[in-house]
């Protein structure tokens, strides 16, 4: 029975190895518009922003969050960090939409577009690979791939 279990784990690991860029886990960076004053944002607060439970910064500015449209490792890593699956996150957004508390975050096609959009929108927050970060945005923190949840 244990042998069976071990075999399964091995097989899973094999599948992960086959997946593109599986082994080279990219570091995901949480970025913000330079106007954002907060230096450190906790995971819980970030989840509150993304789930639209909190809509304003401490200084009263509205919080704008961006999502990545295509399914990617960056996206997966980010939502895993927040502790919600993407589909679950979407359920939360759907509820918010139905109760009229707000629409889901705008989902952009590329990481570059995310950087550009965050740089252009005050009070905005987004997530991209570390390699895509530019001077135009403020880096809030880096999510280590090992850092799960």
């Amino acid at each position: 029975m244990h042998l069976k279990c071990s075999l399964k784990i091995l097989f899973s690991a094999f599948l992960i190895c086959l997946s593109p860029g599986g082994m080279v886990a990219a570091q995901v960076v949480v970025i913000a518009h330079p106007s954002v004053e907060q230096e450190n944002i906790s995971r819980a607060v970030l989840l509150d922003y993304y789930s639209r439970d909190i809509g304003l910064w401490d200084n009263g500015e509205p919080v704008v969050v961006f999502d990545l449209k295509p399914k990617s490792e960056v996206k997966e890593t980010f939502y895993k960090y927040l502790g919600k699956s993407i589909s679950r996150m979407k359920s939360i957004w759907m509820k918010k939409m139905l109760s009229g508390e707000g629409d889901p975050p705008e989902a952009l096609e590329t990481e570059e577009a995310v950087v550009k959009k965050v740089a252009a929108t005050p009070g905005s927050v987004g997530f991209v690979s570390q390699s895509k970060v530019t001077e135009a945005v403020k880096v809030l923190f880096v999510i280590e791939p090992a850092e799960k949840k």
Partner: peptide, 27 residues
Amino acid sequence: LGIYSEAERELFSHFDQQWEAYQDLSF
């Protein structure tokens, strides 16, 4: 317990993707 089959994992993963897509369409 080792009673979660690979087939089920694949199926459920597929369901999750579809469910996500359905929610996008719902938006």
